[in-house]
């Protein structure tokens, strides 16, 4: 799939995952890359940008194995943003699906 397109969806994926519960970086990356082929490193710049936009906050938490982990927690602002993005996404995918159906059924 087109790279630009994938990256557009990445933000939505991150916010949607954090909507349910807090995650640490590695977990977020794995959950996304299990489903979509991405270059995993680009998730971190995205996380930094969204944090700067105050869509989530971070906190450190110890773990049994390995070093303490940085968890990401969605803010109210982030939740609002997620809802906006979801609306856009639904509108967009509805449109695309409609066009595909039209195009493919007439072949």
């Amino acid at each position: 799939m087109n790279i630009q397109f994938k990256k557009g969806a990445l933000e939505l994926c991150v916010l949607a995952l954090l909507n349910k519960q807090d995650h640490y970086g590695y977990e977020l990356v794995k959950k996304i890359s299990d489903r979509i082929a991405i270059s995993e490193g680009s998730v971190y710049p995205l996380l930094r940008r969204l944090k700067k936009e105050e869509y989530f906050t971070t906190y450190l938490q110890e773990s049994q194995e390995g070093p303490s982990r940085k968890y990401y927690q969605l803010t109210d602002k982030g939740r609002d943003h997620l809802n906006d993005l979801l609306k856009e996404w639904e509108h967009f995918s509805e449109g695309v699906n409609h066009i595909i159906e039209e195009g493919v059924s007439h072949e």
Binding site: Q4, K7, G8, A9, L10, E11, L12, S42, P45, L46, R49, H81, D84, L85, E88, W89
Partner: peptide, 9 residues
Amino acid sequence: VNLVKGGMN
């Protein structure tokens, strides 16, 4: 930057 880095806004 948003477009390239994964924004839809």
